[in-house]
């Protein structure tokens, strides 16, 4: 266990007779838009929700490296290769920021990784789809990162301080991710007929899974209402999804690519685009583990972790042998 004293929650409910007073103080702080910090009292359910959400978010970043890393060795120009490597590297970094935020609540990264590897914690289902062509790298940047950013920007104001701060950093760094994807698709769309077809095919495959990234409809979303009250979440799934669709439609036009939804049209009355029904059966299947790449992604993650065990162990052994040297040097 690597949990720091500074990161331990202060006290538990049982230790405090005045839980009700703490709860009132907590509610008041959240209502006043103040940030909750690691050692503040917080309801157990709030803590559990946050750990679950931050862990899932961190897992998504590191599993999300795989579909894109799949193309690093085949990137068709050196410029694209540099961009893609930097992007995949950022995702590792973002995973680290988020694990670090989760650790402030007293759960070690090792525990969280165990839960990922054993399937007890999830990551975003979107990464269970395969990247079949180079254009998929562009579609992920434009649509998947686009959806993620729509979801994440409000998280910069999340009530839990360390999570909000991690998100500020992540959103700042991610601003290039979506743009590079869009630019990549634009080059393909304006390129040869084969390249254009490659881009269209990728958008056709990634559009619907991207819409599913906002989660189930509001009336079926289990945790939404409570998370909104706690200001872990600021907008409903459906609101964010609508915002994303409205943003994407004109962007697709500029790309010269179509979105694969015959029902997609502007609704003057609502001031929004209407769009077709989402196949939630597919969503649930992928979530259950039956997506095209669930097995593959987890297997690779587990293998990297297991094959790296001797390296991590050696570093620990070396540190134990030489901790006296360091002290001697410092003395």
């Amino acid at each position: 266990m690597a949990t720091a004293a500074a990161h331990k929650a202060y006290g538990t409910e049982e230790e405090h007779a005045g839980t009700a007073a703490y709860e009132r103080a907590f509610d008041a702080a959240v209502a006043a838009d103040e940030r909750i910090e690691p050692r503040d009292w917080m309801p157990d359910a709030y803590r559990a929700t946050l750990v679950r959400q931050m862990a899932q978010h961190a897992h998504s970043e590191i599993i999300g490296m795989q579909p894109e890393a799949n193309w690093i060795t085949r990137a068709p120009s050196l410029r694209r290769k540099a961009i893609l490597m930097a992007k995949v590297q950022d995702e590792a970094g973002h995973g680290l920021y988020l694990y670090s935020a989760a650790e402030t609540l007293g759960t070690s990264r090792e525990e969280l990784l165990d839960k990922l590897h054993s399937g007890r914690q999830k990551y975003s289902s979107i990464f269970n789809y395969p990247t079949l062509t180079w254009a998929d790298v562009g579609a992920i940047g434009w649509l998947v990162d686009g959806a993620a950013i729509t979801n994440q920007v409000p998280l910069c104001r999340c009530s839990y301080g360390p999570y909000a701060r991690a998100m500020v950093r992540i959103c700042k760094e991610e601003s290039f991710h979506q743009r590079q994807g869009y630019e990549l698709l634009l080059a393909l769309s304006r390129g040869t007929p084969e390249q254009h077809a490659m881009a269209q095919d990728a958008v056709d495959r990634w559009w619907w899974p991207s819409l599913m990234m906002f989660g189930p409809p509001d009336d079926e979303s289990a945790h939404s209402a409570q998370s909104m009250t706690w200001k872990i979440k600021r907008h409903s799934n459906d609101d964010l999804r609508q915002r994303f669709v409205d943003i994407c439609v004109p962007q697709a036009e500029s790309l010269g690519l179509s979105l694969p939804d015959p029902d997609l049209k502007w609704n003057e009355e609502r001031g929004h685009h209407d769009f077709g029904p989402i196949d939630w059966t597919e969503f649930k299947e992928v979530l259950k583990g039956n997506g095209p790449c669930n097995e593959q992604r987890l297997t690779q993650r587990r293998r990297a972790h297991e094959e790296g065990a001797w390296v991590r162990e050696a570093a620990v052994a070396h540190a134990a042998k030489h901790s006296d040297d360091t002290k001697a040097e410092q003395a």
Binding site: A2, A4, A6, S108, A309, R312, V316
Partner: peptide, 11 residues
């Protein structure tokens, strides 16, 4: 079980 966990550092 061997120890493969690295300690946490604040930056």
């Amino acid at each position: 079980m061997t120890n493969t966990d690295w300690p946490l550092w604040e930056v």
